[in-house]
């Protein structure tokens, strides 16, 4: 090999290495920005007050800085969306993996891809102008214009494709021999599907549930549009609430000056959001990589 080629080869190698190191710097950047700004916030507001105060009113004259109402709103929507996405997503995954013919699969998979590809503002519009006035108002007469239920439903639809496709991968990678063994013992299809395949794939399926929950927790536009801007401690899906993400959007749309304590709240809220979603993603990756090793 001539030295000229060697230099070129090494240069290209370093260039690609530099690209991939960039992703480490992105992660570090996120941590540095959120943590340093949050430290500024926690210098003025004690951590204890932040996690125990039951009111969140940084933009009012009488200020309270308790994250609980926002956390409540976020978890309420995440839980509500899971009620939609987990059962439907799992059933779709089971159907695709165990029942559907290739032709049917060829119809359903693109539909799921389209559902996954629709921007979240569009889901927000759908929740506000259709789910609430056309569906929810007829079932629950006391539902308000902005409510957690409509947001939960659309976030559920949004995360459904993720549950379905990740679960389907887990179900399809269960070895055929397990199914055949069960059939040989005289099991019915339902016993094979639920008792053997689903149970064998459980950790992989579980990873998809965590992923969907984490996505729901980080979801922003749909909940901002549909769930409202009233931080409160409630378990009532028919009321207006506010999630952590919706609060961050509210502040950055307003004219809160940079550097004030009101502005710094978004970094403290983002810190909580980041910690929750990151730990859920790590958990989900751990579970699914352990699962992948199991059948390889």
């Amino acid at each position: 090999m001539t030295s000229q080629i060697k230099v070129k080869e090494n240069l290209i190698h370093s260039l690609f290495f530099f690209c991939s190191v960039l992703s480490i710097f992105i992660m570090l950047g996120i941590v540095v920005v959120i943590v340093t700004e949050s430290i500024g916030f926690f210098r003025e507001i004690p951590v204890w007050e932040f996690i125990t105060d039951t009111q969140w009113t940084p933009l009012f004259t009488e200020k309270h800085f308790g994250i609980l109402p926002l956390l409540n709103g976020t978890l309420l929507v995440a839980f509500g969306s899971a009620l939609v996405s987990i059962p439907t997503g799992s059933l779709i995954a089971i159907y695709l993996s165990e029942y559907a013919s290739p032709r049917v699969r060829g119809v359903i998979k693109p539909v799921l891809e389209v559902l996954a590809g629709i921007p979240t503002v569009v889901y927000g519009y759908f929740a506000l102008t259709f789910i609430t006035p056309v569906i929810l108002k007829h079932v629950f007469t006391d539902v308000t214009t902005f409510n957690a239920a409509s947001a939960s439903i659309v976030v559920g639809i949004m995360t459904l494709p993720m549950v379905a496709s990740v679960s389907e991968d887990a179900l399809s990678s269960v070895p055929q021999s397990l199914r055949e063994g069960a059939y040989a013992l005289g099991a019915r299809k339902i016993h094979v599907v639920i008792g053997i395949v689903y149970r064998a794939a459980l950790s992989g399926v579980f990873a998809s549930y965590i992923l969907a929950l984490s996505r729901a927790i980080g979801e922003t536009m749909a909940v901002t549009i549909a769930a409202g801007a009233t931080p409160r401690l409630t378990l009532n899906f028919l009321e207006s609430i506010q999630t952590m993400t919706a609060y961050i959007v509210q502040v950055s749309l307003g004219d809160t000056p940079f550097g004030t304590i009101e502005y710094k709240t978004i970094f403290a809220v983002a810190l909580v959001l980041f910690i929750i979603t990151l730990s859920m993603n790590i958990l989900s990756n751990l579970i699914s990589s352990r699962y992948r090793r199991m059948y390889q």
Binding site: I26, G218, T277
Partner: peptide, 8 residues
């Protein structure tokens, strides 16, 4: 990074 919410 793929799981970080876009707002972050």
């Amino acid at each position: 990074l793929a799981g970080v919410p876009s707002i972050v």
